[in-house]
Design a protein around this nucleic acid. Sequence first.
DNA 1: GCCGTTTTCGGCCCGACTGTTTTCAGTCG
Length: 589
Amino acid sequence: MPSNADIAAVFEQMAALLEMKGEVVFKIRAYQRAARTIEHLPFSIEERVASGQPLKGIPGIGEAIEKKTIEFIQTGAVRALEELRGELPDGVLTLMNVPGIGPKTAMRVARELGVTTIEGLEKAILEGRMAALPRMGEKTAENILRHTRALSLRTKDKRTPIGVALPVAEEVIAALRDRCPGLRKLIPAGSLRRWRETVGDIDLMGAADEPQQAIDAFVVLPQVMEVIGHGPKKASAVVKPGIQVDLRIVEDESYGALIQYFTGSQQHNIRLRDRANRMGLSLNEYGITDIATGRVEEFADEEAFYARLGLQLMPPEVREGVWELELAEKRALPRLVELGDIRGDLHVHSDWSDGREPLETMVAAAAARGYQYVAITDHSAGRGIANGLAEERLRQQIDVLRDLSARHSIAVLTGSEVDIRADGTLDYSDEMLAALDVVVASVHSAMGQERERMTQRIIQAMRHPSVTVIGHLTCRLLEERDPIEVDVEAIFQAALETGAILEINASPERLDLKDIHVQRARELGVPLVISTDAHHSDQLAHMRFGVAVARRGWCEARHILNTLPRERFLALIKAPKPERVRLIKQGVA
DNA sequence: GCCGTTTTCGGCCCGACTGTTTTCAGTCG
């Protein structure tokens, strides 16, 4: 059962090997483009093929790539790829993992030095054989050596979770603004601005009268550990704790074109350029050039830039190069859900279990965010390690919360994050669960169960009359723990049937559901909430990450139930489940 | 290999930086 990522990897490798062979660049790009498109599709290619739907129509996928995709799904291999592998030296793909080594260098190193491993490469550099190659030199060899050494700790495609990268970006921005009064604008661009769950590096874009001053100030910031490149308009550096930051500064007039260009995605830009070409225009980061006259138009903001191309401004979160251009042309983009639409948080811990602050603090912080409701959901009894609450303590907590609710304008909902046990039963009695306003049921144990059993386990919990929400469905921890094996499509169907709501867990370590799941859930009409799983009042601010995931799934406020005002939200979660199913089908939000 | 409100053939995104070169190739995004 190949995932979209597996299929994308096949075409990435095709592209890399064709590039080494010296194939025409356009063929290479076609494979790269297909790979990246497939990686970001909101549906499973494997399922689409199984249901007999064509792949043609997906941008960048034509006859040849469709055939190879089907071949891969059916046989687990692609003959053309195997043949290419046979023609080229073993290990060249490994060498290409080293930053600074592209296809040309990888081939020369393999052919002329007989080196096909990272260890062999390091040896060749230390012995001076690398620098002796034509158009190679001491500095190039030295740089590559530095990268191979870093590689033993981190690979080229090791990505940083957005929850780590965004605060780093914000810190650098603040520091640079502080030292550079002439800096008029400065924002994160790239995958960070598109709110991808992980980023490869941090792109910062700005506008200033004297770009060079800002660039020079950047490379000497205390956060900078190592300067990689430093020119008049652009610099790259590694900042603490080891993330690469690329900074570009232009003058005000071309700021719109700059941020458009560097927000990407690459696929989005390639499609945009394609469109511009057909209009007789050429795009770059400084503006739009009329090819016939050579006249350059500059744009101070993105809206005007897109308008010149006949397009509605697209939120960065949807710029993945799949279907947004068609909708922007028809001015049919949805108004995506915003942080300000959120009326409550439904997954919050306190120091009664493994949270770090008292109930009072958490409730006051939720009220201070302007929420109309908040649910306290400490762990259930079975979570010994998280100081889960025995039923008696939970009953005490309910009393305390009733009292708190009376003293605050915010509605304080009683709740629990109850374990779904390995056999699909829940960790409290039915009477206990029925006494709660909000029951978030989550898997925390026996995560290695096989797919069918895990799926049935979760569906059994969804059918329980008192279960309101399923928490962090796939249990993944970004770059730390793989998701559990679960049939997400079956879970979505069960959600529609049972009225169980699915959580978008906004904790930046989780982001679970993830963007493409949310996109699919939205298409099916599956009810969703966004919750922070906060263990500290500061973490209520993680809501922004969850909202971003929903936006990447093209959700409007009506798709997210905790955008509902208090009375309607309470009516919904207190309705018996069959009634809730009916309300949700009507489009309650 | 993909694609078409100029085209089913002939195009295909564009520039910065580095290191090695005296005009440019390779890599990256």
